[in-house]
Nucleic acid binder design. Structure first.
Lengths: 117, 117
DNA sequence: CTTGCTGTTCAATGAAAAGCGAACACCGAT
DNA sequence: ATCGGTGTTCGCTTTTCATTGAACAGCAAG
């Protein structure tokens, strides 16, 4: 009781182990969320707030995307005062879907090269 | 010219090398297409016709799904008389997105286990 | 307590995609 | 030429999902 507990409602997380493959794929099959994951992977744990990401959407949409990422077991969030800190669940997610994160974080070899002239 | 050429319009394929990651993920992030890929993986090349798959959709939707799979570099199709034979582009797709097909074809360890009581 | 910042929720819109039935096109066989 | 089987294309409906603006809630500081 003496510990400083958060009065804010804790976000509901889903552990990667309980995430269906389809949910994982769906979560990653979106340009905004893909950007979030990649950007998050470039930072240390708990170093990024939700608003610190460079995405072309408003706060509302952003909040929804983070909820999706939590439900897919990709992101863990912790409250720190008014802001919410994020962490990529690298090891856990990779244990559940080996190689998937590696694939997503690997630089795209040839996204849209023209076939031929 | 003496060779028996197909008068039918050949389906337009996209080589996996030219497929963006997002397109690959989107193609696989669908229950029907996921089923098609898995079922196709269980058969030898050019052994399955489009209509031979056990999916809960009509022909029209099925045709659309196959078009998506072709565009994602997952499936190659060849005309054989009135029917269209399919092949999973295992090696090529795996070279472009290492591990992704393995992941999809791996039996799901724990899709929907209840968290706790 | 009031202000300011962060993030979530609500209600609604718009766009994308999946679905179907019907019509059409192609091939092989009769 | 006609027919049966296979698959595609054409509208059209329905559903799903991303997005927004505004309202709301929590926390920190003044």
């Amino acid at each position: 009781m003496t510990a400083p507990r958060a009065h804010r409602a804790a976000p509901d997380h889903t552990h990667p182990d309980h995430v269906p493959l389809l949910a994982a794929l769906s979560a990653l099959a979106d340009p905004v969320r893909l950007g979030l994951v990649r950007e998050l992977a470039g930072s240390a744990d708990w170093e990024r707030t939700c608003g610190s990401f460079d995405v072309p959407v408003g706060k509302a949409a952003l909040s929804h995307h983070f909820a999706t990422l939590r439900a897919a077991g990709l992101v863990e969030q912790r409250d720190a005062g008014p802001r919410r800190l994020n962490r990529l669940r690298r090891a856990e997610f990779d244990a559940r879907f080996p190689g998937l994160l590696d694939l997503v974080l690997r630089p795209d070899p040839d996204p849209g090269l023209e076939p031929e002239a």
